[in-house]
Amino acid sequence: MASLEFALRRIDTDYQITDDIDLINKASHIILPGVGAAKNAMMRLNQCELINEISNLKKPTLGICLGMQIFMDASMEDDTDCLGIIPNTCKPFKPERDYPVPHMGWNRVHFTFDSMLTRNIKDSDYYYFVHSYYAPLCNETIGVSKYQTEFSAIIEKDNFFGTQFHPEKSGLAGEKILKSFVSL
């Protein structure tokens, strides 16, 4: 969370951390940073009565890491029902000799569809990932990465965008994605 705040400050973007519906309604852009487990994140959103609010957002909304995963119908992480914005189910990586889990570190992202988010950004650059679950490729996938298997590194559906990687930790490449998002 601190990392994302610092990253937004580095690109001179005003932000507020909130669970307040009025503030969310007033904001021009929404970011859902993901920390922890899917079940807990959904429980927290439910407690704050934000589940419908988020699903019905019409403004540019970016989910990061777990924040992107909960845009899906569900996650196999603790069999959690998610926001259902994108028809997909997050699956766990299987630990293998050459593929320790979590998938942690820098990995390439190949852009597979033209998008306002990635336009003018270099294709197949490296971004920083830390995750044990992944969203399989789907119609909304616009960036693909590979670890054991190909998975959704960036998704887009209407005003909803998601990155499995952490743009706030991905050097200049990540900074460009954040800049691009806030200027949507």
């Binding site: 601190a2 610092f6 990253a7 400050r9 580095r10 930790k169 991905s170 050097g171 900074e175």
Partner: peptide
């Protein structure tokens, strides 16, 4: 640590 996190954009 906070000041480092503020400055750098890598892990």
């Amino acid at each position: 640590i906070n000041r480092v996190a503020e400055k750098i954009n890598i892990p």
